[in-house]
Design a protein around this nucleic acid. Sequence first.
DNA 1: GTTTTTGTTGATTGACGAGTCAATAAACTT
DNA 2: AAGTTTATTGACTCGTCAATCAACAAAAAC
Lengths: 195, 195
Amino acid sequence: MPKLGMEPIRKAALVKATIVEIGRSGSLDVTVSQIARRAGMSPALAHHYFGSKEEMFLAAMRHILTLYGAEVRGALAAAAAEDGEGRIRAILRASFSPGNFRREAVGAWLNFWVLAQTVPQAKRLLAIYQGRLRSNLVAALRPLAGERAGAVADGLGALIDGLYLREVLKTGAPDGAAAVATALAYLEAELRTKA
Amino acid sequence: MPKLGMEPIRKAALVKATIVEIGRSGSLDVTVSQIARRAGMSPALAHHYFGSKEEMFLAAMRHILTLYGAEVRGALAAAAAEDGEGRIRAILRASFSPGNFRREAVGAWLNFWVLAQTVPQAKRLLAIYQGRLRSNLVAALRPLAGERAGAVADGLGALIDGLYLREVLKTGAPDGAAAVATALAYLEAELRTKA
DNA sequence: GTTTTTGTTGATTGACGAGTCAATAAACTT
DNA sequence: AAGTTTATTGACTCGTCAATCAACAAAAAC
């Protein structure tokens, strides 16, 4: 019984299901059937809307990146009045917020990195994310670290990614606060050096 | 024409081929046939010696971990006379040496991380690597950072992993020296903080 | 010199999965 | 009411791949 205007709803459900399934299985070896089933429809319908599994993966990536970007933007807006360090703190809190820093999302992230090795489109998406993160960090660091802002941002960016990566091996609930603390320790050490 | 004593030779060739193929394809979606072909034998023989593809993956992981561990141990032995900072420098240089820090190895590494999400044995191997790295770092940091050694080691470890991760997105030849410099900058910043 | 062990492969099995297609059905248009 | 667009799926195609097996060959053991 075809209700009209299903397309956006179906697509959103598939994107969500894709992320869940990747996170659950811990790999990109998820079948379209699994995804479709979790999204409550037939595999054929999933193909109908996305054309290919790769398109589903890319849409899922875009979604995660969008969510993350929105969270960072929101946090930065809320910290507009603060100084550079406050703004960095905001970025870090957003990066390790419970919404982003949970096993399922981390697993999806990791697999997107793998995807980026072979799918140029995926690589481009990740590069955009990295570029945005970097420019946010640099902007906040400029008044604190001067010309070393770029170098510090690179280190901090890599550290954030590394903390995500290490979450994969951990057992038990993710500890975003600890990750933020580690990143802040890095920041403070670097800032003290400058002076 | 069966020459005897082939087993170790065949196994070594398969392990090497597994790493190459994973690095080349950028994913764990490599077929036993591909691996066997690159190692110069039939797929059936690969199964004969390893029993399953998963065993091949684990053997490849062990091999990479062993190589890396040996390089670090060697570097530490050569730096035995030096102080803590010199020993850390040695660990970093080994970690980002051309042998370890090249696209193929980095790609394999990344995929082993993915494997660790689902194969407990792989997770255990990575945990061992992390534990050893950490204890090496802590030992070298103790005289420099005192009770903060643990925290600094965690940050440094995550930073190292993050720098590896980011190498995946880079285009062009890996730049181990830059990675070492970034990690050293962090270390020096932390040590300065201590005082 | 026969038996056992080790090395080796071609052929096969059995399963699974991405993507296509034809068919059905409900809404919307004219 | 006839035609068009959108939604939806079951059945099917085509390919792939891990793993097995039977068979053959050569060296070693007895």
